[in-house]
Nucleic acid binder design. Structure first.
Length: 852
RNA sequence: GUCAGAGUGGUGAAAUUGGCAUACACGCAGGAUUUAGGAUCCUGUGCCUGAAUAAGGCGUGAGGGUUCAAGUCCCUCCUCUGACACCA
C-alpha cells in the first residue's frame, strides 16, 4: 500500500455515519444484571443559537473519554445526552428573533447534535430528549403534583423583581448588579405577587448530612454546606413592656447574651405594625418602612448603604438582666429571612456597636477590652465574663457555652434552636417559556373550603387543585405574543381559552395557574429519565398497558433503575449550588415518596475548568475572540481538537485557548498516523520486538488506566506522547520498523481510542483489517514488566544529589551491593572521600551517604 | 469579612504522595531539507559564575521548623482566583 498523508476529512464523516448506522454506542439493556455498571453523565446543555462552544467540547470530551474507557473495560456503560431547552435565555433569544421558541429550539438542537456527532461523542442517541418535549414535561408536571400532594409546595405572596417602566416582573438574572433592568436601564422595585414555593428548607438537615458520603470536590461540598448554612443557637422570648406582644430573637453566641442592651427588628416584620400602631412614633416608622421598601436587593447586598433605624417607642424586657428595659428599634440591617427577623444587640458586635453609637443607645460590655478603642468581638468567643449573672468570672469555652444553653432551657428563658441560611425556593416564573404549573384555581371551592370548619386547607391554598393526571401533559399553548405582561403576571394569563377550564373538584368554571416552572425544573430529574428513555420501550411495554403514571413510573424504575444513581457527573462549578442542590432535593423527596430507592443522585462529581480566549478574556462575540469548534475540526480534525482540549491543562483548571498548543496536539496525531502507516509496510515479527519498548508500553497502559478514572487526561496523553517518542526513536535506531508486534501496536491504538476515536478506528480497520469497531474491543491489561536489566539509582552525599549508579534489576534489594557500587563512582568518591558515613538506602529509590 | 482553591522555567504544566525538581507540550535558538516561505526532521534550552559539551553554586511566592532527605509535612506571613456575604 502507498503511504497516505493524514487527512481526517477523508474518514471522520465515514465513521460518524458508520457508528450511527450500527448503533455502536447503544447501551446495554440493563435489568437485574449483576454486571458492574457506570453511568457517566455530563451536565446537559442549553441549546443556544450560537452552537457548541469549545468549553462544551472540553466537558463532553472528558465525559466521552471516561465513558469509552469504561465501555472498553467491560462495564455496562450509560452515556446519554439531552437538552435543557426551557428558560429565559431561549425565550429572550426568541423574542429578539421574533419567533416562537417552540419553533426555534428544534433548530438549535439539530445544530448541537450535528456538532456533537462531528466530535465523535459516543452517546446512545436512542435516549435523547429535550426538557421541552411534552412527553418529557408530562413527567415534570406529574412530579410537581406528587410534591404538591406530599405538602412540599405552597402558594404565597412574595416580592418579585419588577420594572415599573416596562411594567413587568423580572427574573434575578435580568437584574444588573447596580439594581437596574438589563434591558431598559431603569431602577427595579419589588412587587408582591403570589408565588409557588417549594419547602426545600424541610430537607436542610438531610441535604447537609448526606454530603458526607459524596465523592465531590471539597470546594463544592464547602459551598453547599455554606449555602445551607446550618447554625446552632438559641431562641429567646421577650415580653414587650405594657403590651401582650412577644418577641423572639435568635442568637448563635449564647455566651454573650448578658451584654445585650437593645433590640432591632426588620422593618417588614409583621409585628411592627402592632408595635407602633397609634403611637407618636408611628408616622416616622411608616416613613422609614416605606423608604426601606424602595431599596433594591442590590443596594442591600452591596453592603454600601447607611445603617439606619427608628425607635418604636416600645421596650422589651430582658430576661437575662432582671427584666431590664431594652429599647426596640426598626433597623434596615435586620433581615426578615434570617433567624426570627429580630435581633438582640450588644457592644460585642461591630455592626450593633456602630448603630448604638450613632443613636446613642446605652451599651454594656461583659468582657474587658483588649484594644481600648473597640469592644471584644463576640465571634471570637473568648475572654472572661463579667456582669453575667451566674456565669460571672467564667472563661468562655465550649463547656461554658453548653452550661449557658442548659441554664437558658432550665430557666425557660428560651430554647436551643437551629437556624439555616437556606431559604424556601420560589418556583414560579411569570414567563411563557417554561413548563406550565399543573394547578387549577376554583373560586367557588375556595369559598366553600374557607367557610367550612372541617376543612384543613390553609386559606392561601384554598381552591387549588392539581390537574388530573390523565390530562397530562398540560401543554404550553402555541401563541404569537408571549412577551412579559404589564401587570407582571405570566403572559399565559392573556390566553383566555387556555386559562379557563373546569374545576377538577366541582366541575364548575375555574382558572388555570398561569405561572410556569423555572429553568431548574427540567434539570432536577433528567438524569433519572435517561435509563428508561428509550422510545421502543415507551411505545410497546409501557404505552400499551396504559398504566396510571404512578404505576408506570414504578415499573420503569423497577426495570431500568439499576442504572441509577449517576456514577460520574461532570460539569462546570457554576452549578455548585443551585442545580446540584435542587436535584439532590428532588431525589430525596422522591425517596420519601418511595418513587426511588436511593438518596443521592450523583456519587462522583468532577468540575471542568473554563476555557478563556487567547487574550485571557472570556470568549464573547462582542470581543471577537470566540473559537468555533467547527472551524477547528475543519482545519485539524476532531481528534486533534479532542487531544488538545484533554491535554491543555488539568481538567478542572481555567485555561486560555492556544492555537499554537493545538498545533502540537495535531502534530502528535499526525505522527501516530505516520508510524502506523510505516508499520503497515513492514513485515512485523514478534521475535524482533524491543524489550525496552514493550516495557514502556506496559508502563503507559498502566498510567492511562489509572489516570482516566481520576480525570487526569492531560497526564494520560503526556504518557502516550512519551511512548510515541520512544517508539519512533527505537524504530529509527534499528533502521527497520520491526520493533513492535501487531498485538502490541494494537494495544497502543486501543488506549488512544477514547481520546482520538476517529484516527484509531481508521487505523484499526484499514491497517489491521479489523471487521468490528475498535471502540467495542477490550481495554488492554498491562503485563508485569519484562525484566528491566538495569535500574538507575540516584546517590546523595549528605543529602545532596551527586551521581547516579546502574544496578542490575536482580540485585536491587541487595543493600551492601548497591552501597559498594556507589562507592566505586568517581563523583561519589570525590565527595565521600575517606570519611566515616552512615548510609540510608530506600530500595530502588535512593541511596544517601551521611558523614556527619 | 467568611469559606474554598492556587502560587514551580519565557508559556501551559509534570513529579508513582517525603526520595534525581521541571516529564510532556508550546515558544525560542542553531542545524538539515527547501528557489523561498510553510510543513517536516535533528540538536539545544531553569538561573548565576565560566571560553567551556570543565567545574561549581543557586533554585518550586516569603520567612522559620521537622527530617538523612521537603514542591510535597508543620507554623507565620504575602499574593492571586472563585463562591458567599449587613447571618444576629
Amino acid at each position: 500500500m502507498i503511504y497516505q498523508p493524514y487527512q481526517p476529512k477523508d474518514f471522520e464523516k465515514k465513521w460518524q455515519d458508520e457508528w450511527d448506522k450500527n448503533k455502536t454506542y447503544k447501551s446495554a439493556v440493563r435489568n437485574s444484571s449483576s454486571k458492574k455498571k457506570q453511568y457517566v453523565l455530563a451536565m446537559f446543555p442549553y441549546p443556544s443559537g450560537a452552537g457548541l462552544h469549545v468549553g462544551h467540547v472540553r466537558v463532553y470530551t472528558g465525559t466521552d473519554v471516561t465513558a469509552r474507557f469504561f465501555r472498553m473495560s467491560g462495564y455496562d456503560t450509560l452515556h446519554p445526552m439531552g437538552f435543557d431547552a426551557f428558560g429565559l435565555p431561549a425565550e429572550n433569544a426568541a423574542i429578539k428573533a421574533k419567533k416562537n421558541p417552540m419553533d426555534m429550539v428544534p433548530e438549535h438542537i439539530a445544530t448541537f447534535k450535528k456538532q456533537m456527532k462531528s466530535l465523535g461523542l459516543s452517546y446512545d442517541w436512542d435516549r435523547e430528549f429535550a426538557t421541552t418535549d411534552p412527553s418529557y414535561y408530562k413527567w415534570t408536571q406529574w412530579l410537581f403534583i406528587q410534591f404538591y400532594k406530599m405538602g412540599l409546595l405552597y402558594k404565597k405572596d412574595t416580592p418579585i423583581n419588577y420594572c415599573p417602566v416596562c411594567k413587568t416582573g423580572l427574573a434575578e438574572e435580568e437584574v444588573l448588579p447596580n439594581g437596574t433592568h438589563e434591558r431598559c436601564g431603569n431602577k427595579i422595585t419589588k412587587k408582591d405577587l403570589p408565588q409557588w414555593i417549594f419547602k426545600i428548607t424541610k430537607y436542610a438537615d438531610r441535604l447537609l448530612s448526606d454530603l458526607d458520603g459524596l465523592n465531590w470536590p471539597e470546594g463544592i461540598l464547602a459551598m453547599q454546606r455554606n449555602w445551607i448554612g446550618r447554625k446552632e443557637g438559641v431562641i429567646i422570648n421577650h415580653k414587650v413592656d405594657g403590651t401582650d406582644i412577644q418577641l423572639n430573637t435568635f442568637s448563635a453566641y449564647p455566651a454573650w447574651l448578658f451584654a445585650d442592651t437593645f433590640i432591632v427588628i426588620a422593618p417588614e416584620h409583621p409585628l411592627v405594625s402592632k408595635l407602633i400602631k397609634g403611637t407618636k412614633y408611628e408616622k416616622d416608622a411608616l416613613a422609614f418602612i416605606e423608604e426601606h421598601k424602595q431599596m433594591t436587593q442590590q443596594e442591600i447586598l452591596s453592603g454600601n448603604f447607611e445603617k439606619k433605624g427608628v425607635f418604636t417607642g416600645k421596650y422589651a424586657l430582658d430576661p437575662f438582666n432582671n427584666n431590664r428595659k431594652m429599647p426596640i428599634w426598626l433597623a434596615n440591617f435586620a433581615l426578615m429571612d434570617f433567624g426570627t427577623g429580630i435581633i438582640r444587640c450588644s457592644a460585642h458586635d461591630i455592626r450593633d456597636y456602630e448603630f448604638a453609637q450613632k443613636y446613642k443607645i446605652e451599651l454594656n460590655e461583659v468582657v474587658d477590652r483588649i484594644d481600648s478603642k473597640i469592644p471584644v468581638n463576640a465571634h471570637d468567643n473568648s475572654g472572661i465574663l463579667k456582669k453575667s449573672g451566674p456565669f460571672t468570672g467564667r472563661n468562655i469555652d465550649q463547656k461554658l457555652i453548653q452550661d449557658v444553653l442548659d441554664w437558658i432551657e432550665k430557666t425557660k428563658i428560651g430554647k436551643r434552636e437551629v437556624s439555616y441560611h437556606l431559604r424556601d425556593w420560589i418556583f414560579s416564573r411569570q414567563r411563557y417559556w417554561g413548563e406550565p404549573i399543573p394547578m387549577v384555581f376554583c373560586e367557588k371551592c375556595a369559598k366553600n373550603q374557607v367557610k367550612s370548619q372541617k376543612s384543613k386547607v390553609k386559606s392561601e391554598m384554598a381552591g387549588w387543585f392539581p390537574v388530573p393526571e390523565n390530562e397530562l401533559p398540560l401543554k404550553l399553548p402555541y401563541i404569537k405574543s408571549y412577551e412579559p405582561t404589564e401587570t407582571g403576571e405570566s403572559p399565559l394569563s392573556t390566553v383566555a381559552d387556555w386559562v379557563n377550564t373546569k374545576c377538577p373538584h366541582c366541575g364548575g368554571p375555574a382558572k388555570r395557574e398561569t405561572d410556569t416552572m423555572p429553568n431548574w425544573a427540567g434539570s432536577c430529574w433528567y438524569f433519572l429519565a435517561f435509563p428508561f428513555w428509550n422510545q421502543e420501550k415507551e411505545n410497546s411495554e409501557f404505552k400499551i398497558k396504559n398504566l396510571e403514571l404512578n404505576e408506570n413510573w414504578k415499573l420503569k424504575i423497577k426495570n431500568f433503575g439499576e442504572w441509577l444513581p449517576v456514577d460520574r457527573y461532570l460539569g462546570g462549578a457554576e452549578h455548585a449550588v443551585l442545580h446540584l442542590l435542587y436535584a439532590r432535593f428532588w431525589v430525596k423527596a422522591l425517596y420519601d415518596l418511595k418513587l426511588l430507592d436511593f438518596k443521592e443522585p450523583f456519587l462522583q462529581l468532577n468540575n471542568v475548568g473554563m476555557i478563556l480566549a487567547e487574550d485571557h478574556r472570556k470568549m464573547s462575540k462582542s470581543w471577537g475572540n470566540v473559537i468555533n469548534p467547527d472551524d477547528v475540526i475543519a482545519e485539524y480534525g476532531a481528534d486533534a481538537l479532542r487531544i488538545y482540549e484533554m491535554f491543555m491543562a488539568p481538567f478542572n483548571t481555567e485555561i486560555p485557548w492556544s492555537t499554537k498548543a493545538l498545533q502540537g496536539a495535531y502534530r502528535f496525531v499526525k505522527r501516530v498516523w505516520d508510524i502506523y502507516q510505516k508499520n503497515q509496510n513492514s513485515n512485523i515479527k514478534r521475535e524482533k520486538e524491543d524489550v525496552k519498548l514493550i516495557s514502556k508500553l506496559n508502563k503507559t497502559i498502566r498510567k492511562v488506566t489509572a489516570d482516566i478514572p481520576e480525570t487526569k487526561f492531560n497526564t494520560s496523553i503526556a504518557a502516550m506522547m512519551e511512548f510515541l517518542n520512544d517508539w519512533e526513536s527505537t524504530a529509527g535506531v534499528s533502521r527497520d520498523q520491526n520493533v513492535l508486534s501487531v498485538e502490541n501496536a494494537k494495544q497502543f491504538l486501543r488506549i488512544l481510542a477514547p481520546f482520538a476515536p476517529f484516527i484509531t478506528e481508521e487505523i484499526w480497520r484499514t491497517v489491521f483489517g479489523e471487521k468490528t469497531s475498535i471502540h467495542l474491543s477490550s481495554w488492554p491489561t498491562a503485563t508485569e514488566d519484562l525484566v528491566e536489566e538495569e535500574l538507575t539509582i540516584p546517590v546523595q552525599v549528605d543529602g545532596k544529589f551527586r551521581s547516579t549508579i546502574k544496578i542490575e534489576g536482580k540485585k536491587i534489594k541487595d543493600r551492601s551491593h548497591v552501597e559498594q557500587e556507589a562507592k566505586k563512582d568517581e563523583k561519589v568518591k570525590k565527595y565521600l572521600g575517606e570519611k566515616k558515613y552512615k548510609a540510608i538506602y530506600v530500595t530502588g529509590k535512593i541511596l544517601n551517604f551521611i558523614t556527619n
